[in-house]
Design a binder for these strands. Structure first.
Lengths: 344, 344
DNA sequence: CTGAAAGCGCTTACAG
DNA sequence: CTGAAAGCGCTTACAG
């Protein structure tokens, strides 16, 4: 529309992407004003804001993240570190976080620590290099995550090792494990075994199971597989448990994946779930609700955890000192895999 | 070590992160040389390279991605768009891509289109804003992906809609479906049903199933659930199939997730897998190898697809015009869910 | 190989 | 609100 007068430095280089100069020119305002509009500043008149927004739309202008991050001290980007994309726990967490971040113009970007990006640089290095404003650690911290980075960190989930100075938000694993164990006790089970593995959550769940059993005057029996908490570990741990303790009528697995393995082990020795063996998992993963499993489990409301995590991130970003750890209450989801012990 | 002489602009601001100036100073070389080392340029003497590398290590220097992207025309970052993190297919794809990218100093970053990052900006906008060098679309393209962006695009997987000008790399779905169907035919099955849903891959698999059946003189029978290809769709589709065609002795599901649903449907009417009904899936997902399923399936070597995708990306980046679509050969993985029809 | 210089596209005070 | 200015931390020619 407007004639290009006094073309600003380097603008209009053929089919280049529009810059803030182009927008300012098209809207007939200063470059600074465009920047203010971009940042949603309240001290811009509606009319000017409208014309800037129109220019942005017309030119299909996309602010350069790189330039903004370089010039400003914030990138409005939060780095989320997960251990493995295969571990779906983080998806709900992410959903919850984004619910809070989106209206604030923050965007969460995810990277997996399993495949530390090339050149010997770790995920953390990468996030730091991309000027992430804060980090959410949603996995067991590696040694290099333990050293204080110059960046706010929130830890999501219960972890075996703590990161100094980091807020921790998690589901109340101890409470959830108590609920799970108590559910089996309430059904009338006496011989209740537990399948466990490494990791902060598993440790808390295991300890709480033990405590709950003792409180009920029952003997806790725990087995593990290779140490991990995968399906094969659930299978191996359940095999051991059932071999060592043939009287077992109920099994509490540290997570749904292990429960899946346990189910196979139970079938392998010709017993049925829940007729011969009640089975309860943990996490309420998509797996648990599958028709084939119909697994009774503990819902840990990862979405709620995600929301809390995001609020904690926003708080540190705003320099509010709220190191208060957040704890989300889990709940019992009863499906077809648990029942009273058979009366034979 | 060296006395700071003629401190360069703004360096050493207290506990600031080291910049290229600091490295140059510490190594006693010019800023340009550091940049050359960073980029792995061959025209740097070993001795100087060593001293620069030592300085980098000592200062714990991390190049700023933002600055590099702004200054250079490349960010050495490849944006990978997936539809949903829950769909684990992309994990192997990513592994394969990274195998190629890593030694080249390229890093793949993943974003899900399901949750288009805040502010009305889409994943694509975000990648463009972060100056990604290329895009890998690993999902059904949305309308906005169809419009030519000023960025090279490689499509991974067979899609219902094509992106103009984009190279497509995928597993040979038609071939895989033929292998699956033929496996059931070879076992002696006559009444073989197929469970399908929406999407490019499912369409190709379904059509190939149909063709293979006809070639064998058999009647193709296809059912679907809600249209999607999730577990509940597999369940619903299988229910319909078994109700409409009680003679069915073999089922080919468009993917492993649907097969999981189908298994439940088979159990629900009191039939067993594989004794009464043979079941074959597709994808060889972690699910398929689980003890509880032991699903015969088609391995589509997503890792290989990922490698090919990465090579295609590198080719476009190097301006080699190789629009040749790549096709990866799938293979049969026989487990416990298929067998000869029972001889009753 | 070096060193000074320009520039990438923004943000941030700052004086008007 | 504006406009000129400096600067974020790099890369990229370019003359030595």
């Amino acid at each position: 529309m407007t004639e290009p007068v006094a073309t600003p430095p380097q603008s209009r280089g053929g089919r280049q992407r529009a810059t803030i100069y182009d927008v300012a020119e098209a809207a007939g305002v200063s470059k600074s004003l465009v920047s203010l509009v971009l940042q949603g500043s309240p001290k811009v008149s509606t009319s000017r804001r409208t014309s800037v927004e129109r220019a942005i739309a017309e030119l299909n202008y996309r602010p350069s993240r790189a330039a903004a991050a370089l010039a400003g001290h914030r990138s409005r980007t939060i780095g989320v570190v997960v251990d493995d994309f295969r571990n779906l726990w983080f998806v709900d967490l992410l959903d919850g976080m984004r619910e809070i971040f989106e209206p604030l113009g923050l965007s969460a970007i995810v990277a997996d620590s399993a495949h530390d990006a090339g050149g010997g640089l770790t995920v953390i290095d990468n996030f730091v290099a991309s000027k992430a404003d804060a980090l959410v650690i949603a996995c067991e911290p590696t040694p290099e995550m333990m050293v204080a980075q110059d960046i706010p960190v929130v830890v999501a989930g219960n972890r075996a090792r703590a990161i100094p100075g980091a807020t921790v938000i998690s589901s109340d694993d101890a409470r959830g494990a108590r609920i799970a164990t108590q559910h089996l006790i309430d059904l009338g089970h006496i011989h209740i075994g537990h399948l466990t593995g490494e990791g902060g959550s598993a440790a808390l769940r295991g300890e709480s199971y033990r405590q709950t059993m003792i409180d009920a005057g029952l003997e806790p029996i725990t087995r593990s597989g290779s140490g991990r908490t995968n399906e094969p570990d659930g299978f191996a741990a359940a095999q051991r448990l059932l071999a060592d303790e043939p009287a077992t009528t109920a099994v509490f697995a540290a997570n749904d994946t292990m429960a899946l393995g346990a189910l196979a082990a139970v079938h392998d020795i010709g017993r049925r779930v829940p007729e011969d063996v009640s089975l309860i998992g943990y996490d309420n993963s998509p797996l648990a609700s599958s028709q084939i499993l119909r697994l009774t489990t503990i819902e840990d409301d990862s979405r709620d955890v995600g929301r809390l995590v995001a609020r904690a991130v926003v708080a540190v970003l705003d320099d509010e000192r709220t190191d208060a750890a957040g704890l989300v209450e889990p709940s019992l989801v009863i499906r077809a895999s648990t029942g009273a012990p058979s009366s034979r």
